[in-house]
Computed example of a mutant assay.
Amino acid sequence: MFYREAGQFKASYQADSRIFPIRQDQIGFVALMAFLFLVVPFIANQYWLQAVLIPVLIFGLAALGLNILTGYAGQLSLGSAAFMAVGAFGTYNFMLRIDGMPFLVAILLGGLCAAAVGILFGLPSLRIKGFYLAVATLAAQFFIVWVLVKFGWFSNYSSSGVITAQRVNILGIDFRSPEMKYLLTLTVVTVLALLAKNMVRSSTGRKWMAVRDMDVAAEVIGIRLMRTKLQAFAISSFYCGVAGALYAYMYLGTVEPEGFNLDLSFKILFMIIIGGVGSIMGSFIGAAFIVLLPVLLNVAFHGSIGAFVPADLASNMELIIFGSLIIFFLIVEPHGLARLWQLAKEKLRLWPFPH
């Protein structure tokens, strides 16, 4: 009744191939963007902006990059944090060594550096797949972090290895406050997410999905496997590189190799598993789940429940419940939380009639 596309006629192919072809989706997206841009900066406090919303956006962008590679192209990777580190250190060095380098241009160049490294480590995908490819990308995680620690040039020969990120100034506007950092992060993430949404619906995205479903058949019908796989690695690494730059400048405030360790790679992998593999929205739903669930569990155990549970047990129970919920979602809904949203939309289309 409320979510029905009956009567919405498309007079051209362009109208039918829009990112949001249904009018309700267009209204919902515009309303969501208006709320995030115009309302949230005024009603959210510093804690919610700096510790919740900004990490959700950044991790959602990183998960989107991994989802392009794993969910759409079918190439498993465990080196997402390493490509984030390349983007962060690339952005730092471009701003350090080139006077007057704009921050947005530095982020773009840092992402391109991550894309180049992603192509290099994507070469094994031409010969191996599955578990062996995951091991190859895992080697990238350790190798890139080792290079950033071993060669002092990347950290400007800092003795501690921890570098304070430069101040971000765009067109004379200083992005030091949590509100400005949030708006800048939201703008970059929104633009890249819309580009990814449009990309996976194009011929490029169809080639990725053909390779994911059956690479031999894709090659038979004329899809060039080498170009398609390396393109997926490049675009995925670019997204992770941009997310890494935002992670260092908008969230951490420092550029350090230890901030992009293996735990971060696994966290991003869990985001797309929980949110939904092969789903743009699922990347952000998974990021919100991973970021918000520990906060909610922490509040619960240090609130009413914590009065009856010892402190040492409460800290361990948070990890136990967190892992149990992940396993629960994997068993009950292996397609992720995004699939629940799709099912809800399908029921709304037929409501109030029975399905």
Rank of each mutant, 00 (worst) to 15 (best):
T91M: 01
F353Y: 15
V277Y: 10
F329R: 04
Q24V: 11
L225G: 10
H355D: 15
G278H: 03
S17C: 06
A140D: 01
A300Y: 11
F233L: 00
G110L: 04
W208H: 09
R227E: 10
G241Y: 09
Y132V: 06
G110Q: 08
G241C: 02
L246C: 03
N198S: 13
Y247E: 07
F233I: 03
F301R: 06
Q141A: 09
I280S: 07
N316D: 10
V52G: 01
S315L: 13
S202I: 06
K345R: 10
E318H: 11
A11W: 12
R176I: 11
G244F: 08
R23P: 05
T187D: 01
V86T: 00
V332I: 14
I274C: 06
L109V: 08
L53N: 00
M33W: 11
V299R: 15
R339T: 09
K10S: 06
L108R: 00
Y3N: 11
L66M: 14
L292E: 05
A196K: 05
V242E: 12
K10M: 00
D213F: 04
K345F: 03
I326P: 03
I327Q: 09
G130H: 01
P124K: 03
V168Q: 00
F308M: 14
A139H: 06
R349W: 14
I285N: 03
E346P: 06
L69K: 08
D215F: 05
S12P: 08
R224K: 15
C240R: 01
L195A: 14
V86W: 02
A196R: 07
F131H: 12
F89H: 08
Q46A: 02
I144N: 02
L138S: 06
F42T: 02
L69F: 10
V309Q: 01
I19R: 07
M281C: 10
G172Q: 01
I268C: 04
A288V: 07
A140T: 03
F9Q: 15
A116K: 05
G74V: 04
I268K: 03
A193W: 08
I321W: 02
A217Q: 04
L109M: 04
P352R: 07
L69Y: 07
I221W: 08
Y247C: 03
A243T: 03
Y92W: 11
Y132M: 05
A85P: 06
L36T: 01
R224Q: 13
S155Q: 12
M84V: 05
S155I: 02
K207H: 14
F9M: 13
A116H: 00
V211E: 05
L337H: 09
H355G: 14
I327C: 07
G118D: 07
F9A: 14
V162Q: 13
S159V: 15
L319P: 01
E219M: 12
